[in-house]
Design a protein around this nucleic acid. Structure first.
Length: 210
DNA sequence: AGCAAGATTAGCT
DNA sequence: GCTAATCTTGCTA
């Protein structure tokens, strides 16, 4: 780990073993780090969504559906679940524990390290459009399907300790309108007033930290 | 082997 | 707000 700034401290396996809704909140403020041959890029997680497979119609693993794509969700918490959506790779943290297919989708980051590298990958200049969406952040960090199934406690792709947000907003998840009742579950979390979130939405409620 | 759908994005009206 | 782009997965035959 000598090549990383010393403030980058990976989260432990234990961190990923909390209940999925708790983990989705706890991930806010954490640093998502990706290392490649071109260098390291990282950003603070500012927006997440929880997917509780067995009973959540919006989840790929709804009704415990187990396919080549969802297989990793049935494994231990803290692994990488990446999948392709149209032309984009989306990044999720496996949760729920062995045999319980749940996950947290990371939807937006606040760029922190390797910003020039991110800009070159996206071919844009505006900082606020670099990682404000699930497909944008994977392209900026260089996350691909090669990361599928790897552990998030170790390089090249891992989650490190960050800061504790003052306030967390809670709302409905994005882009799942055809998922029946599940579309209204308040399982989207974002750091209140953060300008890097993927979309502005009215919060169902707000959680203040002391 | 064929096909429909999709946890998105960029660009245009 | 609306639509095209673009391609893999998973389901049906």
């Amino acid at each position: 780990m000598g090549e990383f700034p010393k403030e980058i401290v990976p989260q432990s396996q234990k961190f990923f073993e909390q209940p999925t809704l708790e983990l989705a909140k706890a991930l806010l403020g954490c640093l998502l780090v990706k290392e490649t041959d071109f260098g390291m890029a990282a950003g603070y997680i500012v927006e997440t969504e929880a997917y509780i497979g067995p009973t959540d119609r919006a989840a790929h693993s709804y009704n415990n559906k187990r396919t080549g794509r969802t297989e990793i969700m049935f494994h231990r918490s803290g692994l990488v679940y990446t999948y392709l959506m149209h032309t984009h790779c989306l990044f999720n943290v496996v949760s729920g524990g062995e045999g319980n297919p749940e996950a947290v989708l990371v939807r937006a980051l606040e760029p922190r390290f390797g910003i020039e590298l991110m800009k070159s990958r996206r071919e844009i200049k505006e900082l606020t459009k670099l990682t404000d969406g699930p497909g944008k952040l994977t392209k900026s960090l260089g996350i691909t399907m090669e990361d599928y199934g790897n552990s998030l406690t170790l390089p090249p792709l891992f989650i490190a300790k960050g800061f504790s947000p003052e306030s967390i907003s809670v709302g409905k998840r994005i882009g799942i309108d055809n998922s029946g009742e599940a579309k209204d579950y308040p399982w989207r979390y974002w750091i209140t007033n953060n300008k890097f979130v993927s979309r502005h939405q009215k919060a169902e409620y707000v959680v203040k930290n002391e």
